[in-house]
Measured scan of single mutants.
Amino acid sequence: MKVIFLKDVKGKGKKGEIKNVADGYARNFLFKQGLAIEATPANLKELE
């Protein structure tokens, strides 16, 4: 799953980066902790 990092995550990505991560990792950790959001077309447009 592609995500947009909202904060730096050690060993995974830095704020503003778009990366592929495991679905479970994204849903169970990154999204719940507010560290990333899903890289949907709408979210990508907001990032620009």
Rank of each mutant, 00 (worst) to 15 (best):
G24R: 13
K12E: 11
E46K: 14
L47E: 06
R27K: 12
L35I: 07
D8G: 06
A36T: 01
K15M: 10
G11P: 04
N43E: 06
G11V: 01
Q33S: 09
V21R: 00
A39Y: 13
I37F: 03
K14M: 12
R27G: 02
K2W: 15
A42K: 11
L44T: 07
N20W: 15
D23Q: 14
Y25D: 06
E17P: 00
A22T: 13
A26G: 05
K45L: 13
Q33T: 09
K2S: 12
K12N: 07
K32Q: 10
N43K: 10
E17T: 06
K15E: 07
K12Q: 15
K10A: 14
F31Y: 05
L35G: 02
D23K: 14
F31V: 07
I4E: 02
L47F: 13
K10T: 11
K14Q: 10
V3R: 00
D23T: 15
V9K: 02
F5Q: 00
F29R: 06
K45P: 05
G11I: 02
K15Y: 06
F29E: 09
E48W: 11
T40W: 05
E48S: 13
A39I: 05
P41W: 12
I18W: 03
F31W: 02
A26Y: 13
K2L: 15
L6A: 02
A26S: 05
K12D: 07
E48Q: 14
R27W: 10
K45Y: 11
Y25E: 08
L35R: 03
F29H: 10
G24F: 13
V9F: 04
F31E: 02
A22Q: 11
K32G: 07
Y25W: 10
T40P: 05
L30Y: 04
A26T: 08
G16Y: 08
R27L: 12
M1A: 05
G24H: 14
F29M: 08
A26K: 03
A36N: 00
G13Q: 03
P41N: 09
D23I: 15
K19D: 03
G13N: 02
L35M: 08
E46S: 13
I37Q: 05
K45I: 12
D23R: 14
N28D: 13
G13Y: 13
N43G: 07
I4F: 08
D8T: 12
E48F: 14
P41R: 09
K10Q: 12
A39L: 08
V21Q: 02
D23F: 14
K45N: 10
L30R: 01
T40I: 06
F31M: 06
D23N: 11
F29S: 06
N43Q: 08
V21M: 09
V9Y: 04
K10N: 10
L47R: 09
K12G: 13
P41S: 10
Q33K: 14
N28T: 08
K15T: 08
D8Q: 04
V3Q: 00
G34K: 09
I18K: 03
G13R: 00
F29G: 03
T40E: 04
G16A: 03
V21I: 09
K19F: 06
K32S: 10
E46M: 15
L30G: 00
I18A: 04
K14T: 08
V9D: 01
I4Q: 03
G24P: 11
M1H: 05
L44F: 08
F29K: 07
D8F: 08
G24Y: 14
P41A: 13
E17K: 03
E46I: 14
K12H: 15
L44Y: 06
A39E: 02
A36M: 00
K14E: 07
N20E: 15
E38P: 14
V21H: 02
A36K: 00
K15F: 06
A36D: 00
R27A: 07
K10G: 08
T40D: 05
L30N: 00
G11N: 09
G34M: 08
N20D: 13
N28P: 00
K19Q: 07
I18H: 03
E48N: 12
N43D: 06
Q33E: 11
G13F: 14
A39K: 02
E48T: 13
K15W: 04
Q33N: 15
A36F: 01
V9A: 03
A22L: 10
G11Y: 08
L44G: 04
L30P: 01
E48Y: 12
L30E: 00
A42P: 07
K2E: 08
L30D: 00
A42R: 10
K15A: 13
P41K: 10
E38M: 10
F31P: 01
L6S: 02
Y25A: 06
E38S: 07
G34L: 07
A42T: 11
G16E: 01
G13D: 02
Y25K: 06
K15Q: 09
P41L: 12
N28W: 12
V21G: 00
A42F: 09
K14F: 12
A36Y: 01
K12A: 15
P41G: 09
N20F: 15
G24L: 12
L35Q: 04
V9I: 08
N28G: 10
A36V: 06
K45A: 14
Y25T: 05
K12F: 15
K45G: 09
A26I: 09
K19P: 00
K7F: 13
A36R: 00
A26V: 09
E46L: 15
M1N: 04
N43F: 09
A39G: 04
G13M: 03
K32D: 08
N20T: 15
I4D: 00
M1I: 15
G34N: 09
G16L: 04
K7Q: 13
Y25F: 10
P41H: 10
I18G: 01
G11L: 04
G13T: 02
K7D: 06
D8V: 03
K15G: 03
E48K: 11
N43W: 06
L35F: 11
V3K: 00
E17L: 03
P41M: 10
K10S: 10
D8R: 06
K7V: 14
Q33D: 07
T40M: 05
T40V: 05
N20V: 15
L47S: 08
L44S: 06
F31G: 02
G13W: 14
K14G: 06
K32A: 13
A42G: 11
R27V: 11
Y25R: 06
G11K: 05
R27M: 10
F5K: 00
T40L: 06
T40N: 08
K7S: 10
A42Y: 08
G11S: 05
K19W: 07
G34V: 03
K12T: 11
V3H: 01
K14L: 12
A39H: 06
G24S: 15
F31D: 01
V21T: 03
